[in-house]
Design a protein around this nucleic acid. Structure first.
Length: 275
DNA sequence: AGACATGTTGCTCA
DNA sequence: ATGAGCAACATGTC
C-alpha cells in the first residue's frame, strides 16, 4: 500500500498523537518476522519512559526518535499501516508493535503480510539504515543530469522497472511509477536508453511533480492531516481509474490497459503512451 | 478455487 | 563484473 506520500501520512498520524508524550508499556511480538532485523525485547525495554522527540520519513522508511537517542525505524512493506488507538486498546492478530503512551492513546503498527519490518538503533548519530537512503527526488541532488546518467546505466530495462529502483527513485512504487509515465506520455515498456532529450525532460518534470502533488494531496503537506488516505486525490489523476475494471483514461476517455511490465501490474493509456 | 495485491531481496543467467 | 528477470516471502480479498 504505502509509497512515499502514504508513508509520510502514517508518520504524521503517529507524530501528531505522540510527540512530546511519554512511552509506557511497549508490546513487541518478538516471534514475528517483523522483528527479523530488530531486537524486540531490548527495544521494548529501552523505549519505556522515553519521550517521542522527532520523526521523519525518507523514501518508504520512517524513523521515530525517542529522547533523541533511541531510533525506531519502520518500513510498512506491502500491507503495513500505522494508527492511533484509544487507551486500553488490545492488540489484534496482525498488530506487531504497540506503544502505550502514559495518559494517552496507543500507537499501533499493523502489517498482515509482514513484508514490512522494524529497525532499531541507540545513540545520537544516524544509523546506516537511515543515512544510506538515496537523496529525496525534490532535493537539489536529483538533477536532470543525474536522471540521464541513470537512464544510460539502465538502458536495457523498461522505464517501469527503472522507476521502481529505490537506489535512484526513493519512495516511488507501483502507482506513482504509472502516474509519472502517464503524465509524461511515455509507454512503460519503453527502454530507458532510447529516450530523446525532450522525453527525458518530461520524465524529470513529472517525477518531481508527482512527488510534490502526492505529498500535498495524500499527506496534507502544508496543511492539516487528511482524515484518510486518498480522500483528496482528484479524478484528473490516473490513480483513481487504474484499478477499476473498465477504467478509462481521464485525459483521452479511452479504456486503460493493464498488463505486467517490469514484473509488476502496470496501467497505461494506449491513446497517450505510444511504444 | 484461483488469481492477485501501492514491496524487497536474493538467486540465476546472459 | 554488471545488469535484467523472476521466485520467494505470508496473508487477505475479490
Amino acid at each position: 500500500m504505502p509509497e512515499l506520500a502514504e508513508v509520510e501520512f502514517f508518520r504524521r498520524r503517529w507524530h501528531e498523537a505522540g510527540h512530546g508524550h511519554r512511552v509506557g508499556r511497549v508490546r513487541a511480538h518478538a516471534t514475528k518476522k517483523t522483528f527479523r532485523e530488530a531486537p524486540a525485547a531490548r527495544l521494548s525495554r529501552a523505549l519505556r519512559d522515553t519521550v517521542l522527540t522527532t520523526s521523519a520519513a525518507r523514501a518508504k522508511q520512517m524513523a521515530f526518535c525517542f529522547n533523541a537517542t533511541r531510533w525506531l525505524g519502520i518500513h510498512l512493506g506491502m500491507t503495513g499501516e500505522l494508527f492511533v488507538a484509544p487507551a486500553g486498546y488490545r492488540p489484534q492478530a496482525h498488530d506487531h508493535l504497540a506503544l502505550e503512551l502514559t495518559e494517552g492513546p496507543v500507537l499501533v503498527f499493523r502489517d498482515p503480510r509482514m513484508f514490512g519490518g522494524v529497525r532499531w538503533h541507540e545513540g545520537p548519530d544516524e544509523p546506516v539504515w537511515w543515512s544510506r537512503i538515496a537523496p529525496d527526488l525534490l532535493s537539489p541532488d536529483f538533477t536532470p543530469a543525474a536522471l540521464a546518467a541513470f537512464l544510460t546505466r539502465r538502458a536495457r530495462a523498461p522505464l517501469k522497472a527503472v522507476l521502481l529502483m529505490q537506489e535512484r527513485f526513493p519512495g516511488i512504487g507501483n502507482w506513482m511509477a504509472d502516474e509519472i509515465l502517464w503524465r509524461a506520455a511515455l509507454h512503460p515498456a519503453r527502454l530507458a536508453g532510447v529516450l530523446t532529450p525532450a522525453e527525458q525532460r518530461r520524465l524529470y518534470r513529472e517525477i518531481r511533480q508527482v512527488c510534490r502533488l502526492a505529498r500535498v494531496k495524500i499527506a496534507g503537506e502544508g496543511g492539516p492531516l487528511p482524515a484518510d488516505l486518498n480522500v483528496n486525490i482528484p479524478d484528473t489523476w490516473l490513480f483513481n481509474h487504474r484499478w477499476a475494471d473498465g477504467g478509462r483514461c481521464p485525459r483521452t476517455g479511452m479504456p486503460l490497459i493493464r498488463e505486467e511490465i517490469g514484473g509488476r501490474t502496470t496501467c497505461w493509456s494506449p491513446g497517450r503512451q505510444a511504444l
